[in-house]
Design a protein around this nucleic acid. Structure first.
Length: 428
RNA sequence: GGAGGGUUGGCAGAGUGGACUAAUGCGCCGCACUCGAAAUGCGGUUGGGGAUCAAUCCCCUCACAGGUUCGAAUCCUGUACCCUCCGCCA
């Protein structure tokens, strides 16, 4: 959420952000309520001050006690109005989207996302490349038919080498991100002064509704698996239980940055995507993902995202898969995002680039909701800046590997960097 | 699921109706001493909101929400969470 003071002082800018992010919110009403709130507070506090003066005295006479009782009634009568005002105000403030960075392109939809750079040319084949499902079925790696029968549409079984490939990818990510030397090298490249490695985490996959709201990930609720009995939800990403890890905490500045690399299953209902990507394993209700999450001082938030993107590029480059790096435009980025960058890997089966990684820089938008602060050297408190990003989304990166590494004879080569974790170099 | 005990500032921990403006210790910040550091000494240090150009003033904050009272960290009710033991369980 944005600071109410910021909204008050930057009315035009905030209105413009809503417009460009295509988020509906009533900024006029917010200011109106904000004014009303402050007036009510003034009124109530004057009564309270008077009341305190009476009860702080050592001796009180009958008259004063009468007066105190009157004041108490006056306060009681005013308070509900303040409460209603604050409730409406808070609700509206939560709907206001985050501001966006200067380099974010202004655009009406995803077609106006900007390509920042490309790695390699799309893979060329001397034969007509198959898509990952053809490969997966013929090599007995993926089964979606049986999964539909057992669990419903958009589920899959992974079999055989695909399973080992998943574990190899996770092992590769975990080793890379916990390696100080590699982090240092990548940090230097982007002028990020911290070589602190990531802490590996396996987080819970269920979060309370309240937590999801504070992460600003509760909505769209239709995309979530919600357990009414427990007022809890399946997470849609490890971000949801990693980013909330320091809720209501004050972190010592010396501890920053705090970097996590979490591995978990993610669950999405994919409501509203009927008919989209129904073949294969690109869009699933359940998938496993390694996710980065970072907490850092505001002045380093931007270079932290640069580091995170550098890590993502490093990982994909090690797999030697062609990709393009894009910065999302205002209409395509998320409501809490300040700057959103995606990696789209080349998928020969579809003959196009598809999103495999995303990196969101939130500035203090989530931290303000979560109440995650840090204590500076001068003892002052400030909200931390948060970054979250994909390390590997297993399903999608498997697609990229299968399709880019396929051979004429229908087999799939294993990327070199993963071979040390496996006892096969080729599938099929 | 059953029984009991808890929740106090960054942390530990005292506090059973008015002097709590929350003891004390640790940590942190500043200063002194020192070539520098450690040790020591002195001072500061919960967080949030409102008014004001500002100095400053006011309100709230002892898990949360209500209640009793002129007055609540303290008494009452409800909720959440944590711990211990028992039961069930991978």
């Amino acid at each position: 959420m944005l600071d109410i003071k910021y909204i008050r002082e930057n009315f035009d800018k905030v209105k413009d952000v809503c417009l460009k992010k295509k988020v509906k919110c009533d900024i006029e009403r917010i200011l109106e309520l904000d004014k009303k709130r402050r007036e009510l507070i003034q009124e109530i506090e004057d009564f309270k001050a008077e009341q305190n003066k009476i009860s702080d005295k050592n001796k009180r006479d009958e008259k004063e006690i009468e007066k105190a009782k009157e004041l108490k009634d006056k306060i009681k009568n005013k308070e509900p109005e303040l409460k209603i005002t604050e409730e409406e105000l808070n609700k509206l403030i939560l709907e206001v989207p985050n501001i966006f960075s200067e380099d974010t392109p202004i655009g009406k939809d995803e077609s106006e996302n900007k390509i920042l750079r490309k790695f390699k040319e799309p893979t060329k084949f001397s034969f007509k490349p198959k898509d990952h499902m053809e490969l997966g079925v013929s090599l007995n790696l993926i089964n979606t038919e049986k999964a539909s029968e057992i669990s419903g549409a958009r589920f899959n079984y992974l079999f055989n080498e695909a399973v080992f490939l998943q574990f190899a990818l996770i092992q590769f990510v975990m080793e890379t991100l916990t390696n100080r030397k590699i982090i240092k090298k990548l940090a230097n490249k982007v002028n990020n002064p911290f070589d602190k490695p990531f802490i590996p985490v396996i987080p819970p996959v269920i979060a309370r509704a309240e937590i999801m709201k504070k992460m600003d990930r509760f909505d769209p609720i239709d995309d979530r698996y919600y357990f009414e009995k427990d007022d809890s939800l399946f997470i849609g990403s490890a971000e949801h239980t990693l980013g909330s890890l320091h809720i209501n905490e004050i972190i010592d500045e010396k501890e920053l940055p705090i970097r996590y690399i979490g591995y978990s299953t993610a669950f999405r209902r994919e409501a509203g995507t009927y008919g989209k990507d129904t073949v294969g394993i690109l869009r699933r209700h359940q998938f496993d993902k390694a996710e980065m999450e970072s907490f850092i001082q505001p002045e380093y938030g931007k270079v932290e995202q640069d580091l995170i993107v550098a890590i993502q590029e490093y990982l994909v480059q090690k797999l030697d898969i062609p990709y393009q790096l894009i910065i999302k435009c205002t209409a395509d980025m998320g409501k809490p995002d300040f700057r959103a960058i995606d990696i789209e890997c080349w998928m020969p089966g579809q003959n196009k680039y598809r999103e495999t990684h995303t990196s969101d820089y939130m500035i203090d938008y989530q931290a303000r909701r979560l109440n995650t602060k840090f204590r500076k050297k001068d003892n002052k408190l400030e909200f931390v800046h948060m970054n979250d990003a994909t390390a590997f989304a297993i399903g999608r990166i498997l697609i990229a590997i299968f399709e880019n590494y396929q051979q004429k004879d229908g087999s799939i080569l294993v990327p070199k960097v993963l071979r040390k974790y496996l006892n096969f170099k080729k599938i099929g």
